[in-house]
Amino acid sequence: MILNVLLSGLSLAAFYFILSAGLSLVFGIMGVLNFASAGYFVAGLYAAWFGLGHGWGILPAFIFAAVVGGVLALLVEVSLLRPLYGNVGGQILTTLGVMLILDEAVNWVFGPQIQQEQMTGLLSQTVMFGGMPFPVFRLLLIAVGVLIFLLLALALRYTGLGLRVRAGVDSQTLAELAGVRVAPLRSIVYALGGMLAGLAGALYGPFSGVYPSAGLDTLLLTFIVVVVGGLGSIPGTLAASLVIGLAEALVGFFVPSLALTVNVLVMILVLLLRPQGLLGKPPGRRDTHAA
C-alpha cells in the first residue's frame, strides 16, 4: 500500500518535472518567466485529446501534442519575442498575452466544459501492486519522466549544442564573444520548452480531464516547483519535483485536504531557509559583460 502511495508520488514527480523543465530551461537562456508555457500546455492537452479521440493510439497522439506545443512556441519566439530581445519586462508581458490568447482560443473552439479523455489501450489498464490496482499509465509517466531527464541531462552535457546552450545560459555576452550565435539557440530552447509543455499537457489529460483552464491550474504547481528547485537548473527541477510530488502523495494519502497546502508550505519553508532554491546559486552574479 505504501508502495502504491510512493509510486503515485513518483508519477506526480515525473509529471511536475516534465511540466517545469521547459520553463526552467527557457528562463536559463532567455531570462524570461514564460507564462506562455501554460498556453502550450493547453494546446498539447487538446491536441492529445483530439488524437486519442480519433483512435490514433497513445504514442502518435502524445507526439502530436509535443509537436503542436513546439511549433506554437517557435512561431511565438520568432514573431513576437525575438524583436523584444533585451527587454525582459516586455517579453514577460508578451508571454502573458500569448497565454491568455491560447487559453481563450481553446475555450472558444472547444467550449469551457470538461472533456473526457478516450481511455483505451494502455490508458485503461492497471497492474496489481501489494494487492492494490495501479494504473499502467502512471508507470508510463514515471518512465517518460526518467527518459526526458536523461535525454536533457545527456544532451546538455555531451553534445556541442548542449555545450553552446550552457555557455549561453552562463553568459550570453561571453558566448557571443566565443563566436556562438545566441539567437538561434534561444529559438531552439524556446521551442523545446514548448514541446515539453505540450507533452505535459498530453500527460495531464488522462488523469485530470481536458478543459481550457488546465494550463492556469497547473501554473501554480509549476511555479512552486521552480521556486523550490531554483530557476535554470535541471537537477534542481528534478529534486524539487521529487520533493513536491512525494510530499503531495504522502500527505494526500493521509490527509487529502492538505495536499496542496503542503506544497505551499514546502515552498515557504524553502524560501525562508534557502531563497535561491534547493540547487540554485546565491544571488549576486549577473552577466557582468553585458552591454
Binding site: R166, V169, L174, E176, L177, R181
Partner: peptide, 23 residues
C-alpha cells in the same frame, strides 16, 4: 554582430578573464 567579429579572429579577454564560470 559580436559573434561574427569573434569568428573573424577577434578575441577579447576582459579584466576578469571572461571564462564561463559554470563550464
Amino acid at each position: 554582430p559580436t559573434w561574427r567579429r569573434a569568428r573573424e579572429g577577434l578575441f577579447y579577454v576582459p579584466e576578469d578573464g571572461g571564462v564561463f564560470q559554470d563550464l
